[in-house]
C-alpha cells in the first residue's frame, strides 16, 4: 500500500512462489557476478594493478627526462620518440596538454608503465583498443601492459584538464618482428637533440 499503512500482519505474510523464485535467481546471479570478478583476477588477462606509489611531480618529471634521454630514437612533431627494451620500466608523463614521450613497443612483450601527471588530473585512454586509466598528480600509477597486436595507437586524454583538454593526444607504436616505427610514424627526426635541455619545458606546467 503505497499511500496507506500496510495491513497489520504484513511481516507475517508469505511471499508468493513466483516472487520467491525470482529473488533466488537474482541472489544467485549476484553471487555469480561477484565471484566472476575474483575469478578474472586468477584466469583473466585484463586486471587493474595492485601497485602504485606516491611521487613528487618534480621527481617524476626527472625520471621522465632520464628515461627519454636513455632510449630516445628521434622526434615527431616536437615530441620525443622512445624505444625502451622489452620487460623494462616505461615512464609516461601527462601534462597540460600533451603526453610524453611517443613510445615504440614490441608486440607480445611486457612493459611496466609508470604513469603520472605534472599538473592536473588526466585520463589515459588508449585507442582504438579502448583501455582507460586515471592519471592523478602525486601518484605513480604502475600498470604492466602487453600489447597483443601491432599498429598505431593513440593516447587520448579523457579527464577534463582545462581549456586545451581536447588537444591532448599522444601515440604508442607497437611493432611486430622485423617492423620499424617509421612504418607507422613516417619520417622521424633523428638528430641528437637533448630533449631535457631544450629549456622550454616548464615543469610547473603553467
Amino acid at each position: 500500500m503505497a499511500l496507506l499503512p500496510p495491513p497489520e500482519n504484513w511481516d507475517k505474510e508469505k511471499p508468493s512462489k513466483d516472487e520467491k523464485t525470482w529473488v533466488y535467481i537474482a541472489l544467485f546471479s549476484c553471487f555469480f557476478m561477484f565471484f566472476w570478478m575474483i575469478g578474472w583476477h586468477i584466469f583473466g588477462k585484463q586486471n587493474t594493478s595492485f601497485v602504485s606509489y606516491k611521487v613528487n611531480p618534480m621527481e617524476f618529471f626527472q625520471l621522465h627526462s632520464s628515461f627519454v634521454e636513455k632510449y630516445k630514437i628521434g622526434e615527431k612533431n616536437g615530441v620525443p620518440v622512445v624505444k625502451p627494451p622489452p620487460e623494462s620500466d616505461v615512464i609516461l608523463l601527462a601534462r597540460m596538454w600533451s603526453w610524453s614521450p611517443i613510445l615504440v613497443l614490441e608486440k607480445d612483450k611486457w612493459y611496466t608503465f609508470h604513469i603520472s601527471s605534472l599538473d592536473l588530473q588526466h585520463g589515459f585512454s588508449l585507442q582504438p583498443v579502448n583501455m582507460n586509466f586515471q592519471v592523478v598528480p602525486g601518484y605513480d600509477h604502475v600498470l604492466k601492459f602487453k600489447p597483443t597486436k601491432e599498429g598505431e595507437y593513440s593516447i587520448i586524454c579523457n579527464e577534463f584538464c582545462g581549456i586545451g583538454h581536447h588537444l591532448m593526444i599522444g601515440k604508442i607504436i607497437v611493432i611486430a618482428d622485423g617492423e620499424t616505427p617509421e612504418k607507422y610514424l613516417g619520417e622521424i627526426k633523428t638528430e641528437k637533440n637533448d630533449f631535457a635541455e631544450k629549456g622550454d619545458f616548464n615543469p610547473s606546467g603553467k
Binding site: K45, Q46, N47, V129, N130, M131, F145, T148
Partner: peptide
C-alpha cells in the same frame, strides 16, 4: 574486454 591488451 578480453580483446584488449593484457594488463595487470
Amino acid at each position: 574486454l578480453s580483446a584488449t591488451w593484457y594488463v595487470k
